[in-house]
């Protein structure tokens, strides 16, 4: 059940974003967010400037987590697709692999069928990319080092003192 840290490298993010761009183009969605199940935003594409994507990522992960528990209670391992229908905008959420969630936000210019079809295709594509990420993570573990403990601590303490203070 316990999973390690999620690590994304530059070459993977390029592939991921290419896949997301294609999904937007094909499905005619407004924007796409890729979120990990812990609520961290991995990346997003499309028109997200007006959205608080950090909060959206946390809420999407929360929504997916509660739905997973509902699934478990009714005897399903997981509901792999979620759909929220609004008056103007709708959200289609798909599970990608074991630990990421793909959320597609779209409006009436496209259809749920279109989004569903291309989201499934993108999800399979992303799953392949993520399996590469995991492999590379293990290979890269030995390469990452920090030389100076004191430099790190000083840098960190200064930042924390600057931000977490009672002066409003």
């Amino acid at each position: 059940m316990k999973q390690g840290d999620l690590v994304i490298y530059e070459e993977q993010i390029e592939k991921i974003e290419k896949a997301l761009c294609r999904l937007i183009k094909d499905s005619q969605a407004k924007c796409v967010l890729l979120v990990d199940k812990d609520g961290h935003l991995i990346t997003r594409q499309g028109f997200t400037q007006s959205l608080d994507t950090t909060a959206l990522a946390a809420l999407l992960a929360g929504s997916f987590a509660s739905t997973r528990e509902i699934a478990r209670l009714v005897g399903e391992p997981e509901f792999s697709v979620l759909f929220h229908q609004g008056k103007k905008d709708h959200i289609h959420i798909t599970l990608v692999g074991e630990r990421t969630i793909l959320a597609v936000i779209f409006d009436d210019r496209t259809t749920i069928g279109m989004v569903r079809l291309y989201a499934k295709e993108a999800s399979e594509n992303l799953e392949r990319i993520f399996s590469t990420v995991n492999r590379q993570h293990h290979q890269a573990e030995d390469q990452n080092r920090i030389d100076s403990d004191s430099e790190f601590s000083t840098s960190l303490e200064n930042r924390l003192d600057d931000i977490f203070s009672d002066q409003s």
Partner: peptide, 8 residues
């Protein structure tokens, strides 16, 4: 667990 994005 922590999420690390080397690209960003």
């Amino acid at each position: 667990m922590a999420s690390i994005n080397y690209a960003f």
